[in-house]
């Protein structure tokens, strides 16, 4: 009866091969173009040059990656906490939901370009404005994911729990919350990618250190190779965080990976 999980050792490698191949070819074409055309590295540096710069400036890059990681993780943790608390409040009190949801929607219409300098102006060059901006960007998708997840609860399961004598709280804990988990993880994977971008943008607007600052300084001194070096690190950072959420999803949503036995 039990269906084994569809995994064989080495299968991941085989499946990942086309992605690696296309990525490597893209960089190869890029490298080739730069060498053949003789284009100035001030306009388009070759991937090899970007790599060289990363090794050369590793101390500076590392020094500036740490604050970005801090801002991302702190902001995202705050965002998750606030989104969860509000999702529970909104789920239990439809009246509050009607009052607050429009405000949250409006918060998503604010252009980050305009808001970020203001937040930096109000809260200074420390970690606080970065945390707030990351939260502003990622809070709403997480809240919507949770609310949609609660709403997707099988009504028959809720009826069953109520027939068992369960309170509204018990129904939430036993049915609505677990039902929302697939939605939560979908939202998590999207938001975590926004989080890094938001942190870097917040730094770009004003900070003492961070990948955003590296990008800003490199741009101002006409060093596209250093800009791209910072971009590589930010992409790698996003990918690592994305992989962690995917791993968490695998662990917590194990039941969804099982085949339908019927």
């Amino acid at each position: 009866m039990q269906r084994p999980l569809p995994r064989r050792p080495g299968e991941g490698l085989t499946r990942g091969f086309p992605a690696v191949l296309s990525l490597v070819s893209a960089f190869a074409i890029w490298e080739l173009y730069v060498r053949v055309s003789g284009i100035s590295p001030l306009v388009l540096p070759a991937p090899s040059r970007v790599l060289d710069q990363m090794v050369l400036n590793r101390a500076i890059l590392w020094h500036n990656t740490v604050p970005t990681v801090k801002a991302t993780l702190a902001g995202f943790s705050l965002s998750l906490t606030v989104a969860f608390v509000f999702s529970v409040v909104l789920d239990f009190t439809p009246r509050v939901r009607r009052a607050l949801l429009p405000i949250f929607v409006v918060s998503q219409t604010l252009p980050l370009v305009a808001i970020a300098p203001l937040v930096v102006l109000w809260f200074g060059f420390d970690l606080t404005p970065k945390i707030l901006l990351v939260t502003l960007v990622t809070f709403f998708p997480m809240l919507v994911a949770l609310l949609d997840g609660y709403a997707a609860t099988d009504p028959e399961i809720e009826d069953l729990l109520r027939a068992m004598g369960a309170s509204r709280r018990t129904v939430f804990r036993r049915a609505r919350l677990p039902s929302a988990m697939p939605y939560f993880f979908a939202g998590l994977r999207i938001s975590i990618t926004y989080a890094v971008v938001a942190a870097i943008f917040a730094e770009y607007v004003g900070a003492r250190a961070g990948l955003g600052i590296v990008i800003l300084n490199a741009k101002n001194s006409f060093r596209p190779d250093l800009v791209l070096a910072a971009v590589v690190i930010s992409s790698a950072l996003t990918l690592v965080l994305f992989a962690i959420t995917a791993l968490l999803q695998r662990i917590f949503l194990r039941w969804r990976d099982l085949g339908d036995g019927r």
């Binding site: 028959e156 009826d159 069953l160 988990m181």
Partner: peptide, 15 residues
């Protein structure tokens, strides 16, 4: 609590 109820579909929690 006088009744134990079994709904039409099994309503087993998949998780």
């Amino acid at each position: 609590q006088g009744f134990a109820f079994m709904p039409q579909r099994d309503a087993l929690m998949p998780w």
